[in-house]
Design a protein around this nucleic acid. Sequence first.
DNA 1: ATGTAACATATTGCATGCAATCCGGTCCTG
DNA 2: CAGGACCGGATTGCATGCAATATGTTACAT
Lengths: 236, 236
Amino acid sequence: MAGHPTRIAHALRARIFAGEHPPGSRLAEIPLAEALGVSRTPIRLALAQLEAEGLVQASAGGGFLVRRFTLPEIEDAIAVRGQLEGMAARLVAEQGLSPATRQAMEASLAAGDAALEAPLLDAAALAAYGDMNSRLHAILLEAAGNDALSRALAAITALPFAAASALVPHEGSAAARHALLRHAHHQHHLLVEALVAGQGSRAEGLMREHAENARRNLRLILAAGEPGVSPLVTQA
Amino acid sequence: MAGHPTRIAHALRARIFAGEHPPGSRLAEIPLAEALGVSRTPIRLALAQLEAEGLVQASAGGGFLVRRFTLPEIEDAIAVRGQLEGMAARLVAEQGLSPATRQAMEASLAAGDAALEAPLLDAAALAAYGDMNSRLHAILLEAAGNDALSRALAAITALPFAAASALVPHEGSAAARHALLRHAHHQHHLLVEALVAGQGSRAEGLMREHAENARRNLRLILAAGEPGVSPLVTQA
DNA sequence: ATGTAACATATTGCATGCAATCCGGTCCTG
DNA sequence: CAGGACCGGATTGCATGCAATATGTTACAT
């Protein structure tokens, strides 16, 4: 009933992100099985899945440990994301934007404009922007039509803070956040412009810089020592 | 005794590559368990691992099927590999080549020169070149020092024919093969030259073109209809 | 004859049992 | 008092049992 190990993997991810399992701690099977109401077998499957994602790592003496992420590791992952999304942008520009894709992207751009219009961003506007952001990146990836690329990006995005929309809501000052989001969304506009114009190299560069943005934001957030950012990321 | 599921995954990979399990066929657990002398449990773990790699896919009604690879899919994977290895080359060039890394690379270059020196390449020379090729790519990745990048590349390389050295031994005409390898190794020389000079963009472009090479070779091989290339790849 | 429905078989997926192994504590010895 | 070895407990990893479900076949009705 509680079923699919993918579902269990989701639950475990949530628990880890919530800080219930600190980095370096053992993920014992029996307590997890009891907590989730299933047997040890699907738990083990889910743990193996999370290991493939890189969220946990196998311990030397058996079992799994919550992986400890350092700031440079996350930055590296973000750079890889930029490289891969840059490739997606280049491919789309080189193939030419289909009318349907262009329409979907422009709809996302408009949604982003609307979300950022207000001088003060409430939670709803932030959520709307985050949705728009995920959608736009998904449209780009879909339009690239490269399954291997999608797989590679999915693996990267599974890591905390490497995903495109992972950094949106965690910013400190509201004004600073608004400025950052406006800048990011301006890059979205430039990207679509480049895609429409068939400028592959420019589109690729824009996506790399877009990710570089995320890297800089991450540094700012951690430097500010914001509490509860993520229990998984250690400064050094 | 037969133990680790990773070992079983290796065995399954070999069986699949050998054509014992044609694309689209079910991988039934019980026969595999009997054939490998273990129980169904580690078999299942290994299958999940192969699914994460993309070599098999979960069937709708349960169980796993051998994935069918089409030529465009492999080409896409090769392109992603080029993008990622291009990133590795750029990073190394930007960081500057450490003396140890430079020495290791130049040793590999010399080994490649030696392997390709003879006008006719015997099996030993081909094996030596293949080893050198893998080593050089590994050195580059290691020098890049980006774990997320290494992971992404490992996932891509696990796919058949997407790996850097997957295409070396399968060529038809000996003379044509020699020319191809010479060209590829010339690119290796140019790459190291760019790395030494700190030319990041050039190094990246060279690695992309290097992968493009592999893509072209793959097309040639499949167009020639060479038998036994791989039972996994279907023309369309 | 063809499509459908019911059945028998086989296979998956999860739960649990059991041996091997690893970790922690305590006792002994120098 | 310190170091090491032995021992008890707990945990992992694999094997197997069992229920649920998908698959292929056959019989039947139209």
